[in-house]
């Protein structure tokens, strides 16, 4: 039986593909620790939000560095860390978004705070298996009426919204969203 040229080409390509797959598989197995970290960070959230309270603190805007046209809010978020290791939400598990534009809301620090002031804000954490509350001060554009808190894994997907809270308009008002 005579072998056709396309058959020889297909055989060569398939053999090369197989060799490449085996090569990648060994590479993957060699770096499975990194693969697990990736999986834990991006495929499944280790933190469950139990409740979120948003309080309008626009009457304290003199204490903060905030642009005109944005309102100030204090966000208190109570979470449970399901994982067997500590979690620092501010390092990127959760991000805030305005409802309309989809842009991130802005973290705001107090006026004249140096690096240590930022550290003081950011030193919040949640130990393994514990339930605790994080607190942030954020600035949101005035035309926005709700705040969406997303898992960072949605950076591209745009799904898996964790919680959406209406933004109170008057200073001193607060809204609490309780999750099951």
């Amino acid at each position: 039986m005579k072998v056709k040229v396309w058959q020889k080409g297909a055989a060569c390509l398939l053999t090369a593909l197989l060799v490449l797959e085996i090569f990648l598989l060994f590479g993957f197995l060699a770096s499975r620790k990194d693969a697990l970290r990736y999986a834990m960070e991006y495929e499944k959230s280790q933190v469950e939000i139990e409740s979120v309270t948003v309080r309008n603190i626009d009457d304290r805007r003199e204490d903060y560095e905030v642009y005109d046209g944005r309102r100030l809010y204090e966000v208190s978020m109570t979470c449970h860390n399901r994982a067997a290791y500590a979690s620092q939400l501010y390092r990127g598990i959760v991000k805030f978004e305005e409802k309309g534009s989809g842009n991130a809301a802005y973290s705001v620090y107090g006026k004249d705070l140096g690096y240590l002031g930022s550290v003081a804000y950011d030193s919040q954490m949640l130990p393994a298996g514990q339930t605790g509350t994080y607190r942030w001060v954020i600035a949101v554009d005035e035309q926005e009426d709700a705040l969406v808190i997303r898992d960072i894994q949605d950076r591209f997907a745009g799904e898996n919204v964790l919680v959406q809270v209406d933004l109170p308009e008057e200073a001193g008002e607060s809204v609490t969203e309780q999750l099951d």
Partner: peptide, 26 residues
């Protein structure tokens, strides 16, 4: 063991804070 954290209650909520290292200070 990890660096310990500080656990405290304020306004009915529980907060945890991680230890600040020497090099964080000016």
């Amino acid at each position: 063991w990890q660096d310990p954290c500080l656990k405290y209650e304020i306004d009915g909520r529980i907060c945890y804070r991680e230890a600040v290292n020497y090099y964080s200070f000016p």
